[in-house]
């Protein structure tokens, strides 16, 4: 029997894996995808809760999060491309001109 708990456990694992990726990877693209993974796990939580409560609101929120993710992807790629043109790499430690 699959309960809401199963979904929440899976989502927490995915969130933490995404968190590790966002904090330890160097490539800006991979960091961005790891953050998207965190957002995906949040989506899963919202949908599972909405289904649990028998409400559509969770699904509507997920729809908007997806729209924002798509917008962020467009902007993120544009910024990364601009960054690459300057620095010839996606590694974010190239982005440490400014410290303290």
């Amino acid at each position: 029997m699959i309960t809401i708990g199963h979904y929440l456990v899976l989502a927490s694992f995915l969130f933490v894996v995404g968190l590790i990726g966002a904090l330890t990877r160097k490539s800006a693209i991979i960091v961005f995808l790891a953050i998207e993974l965190m957002l995906n796990s949040v989506n899963l939580v919202f949908l599972a809760l909405g289904r649990y409560f028998g409400q559509l609101d969770g699904a509507v929120f997920v729809f908007f999060i997806m729209a924002v993710s798509a917008a962020e992807a467009a902007i993120g790629v544009a910024i990364t491309v601009a960054f690459i043109r300057r620095n010839k790499t996606t590694a974010i430690d190239a982005a440490n001109l400014m410290k303290w």
């Binding site: 917008a71 467009a74 902007i75 790629v77 544009a78 910024i79 491309v81």
Partner: peptide, 13 residues
């Protein structure tokens, strides 16, 4: 927001 993202992507790249 999506309109802003579209214009922004053009402006930045």
């Amino acid at each position: 927001l999506l309109l802003g993202a579209m214009v922004g992507a053009v402006v930045l790249s």
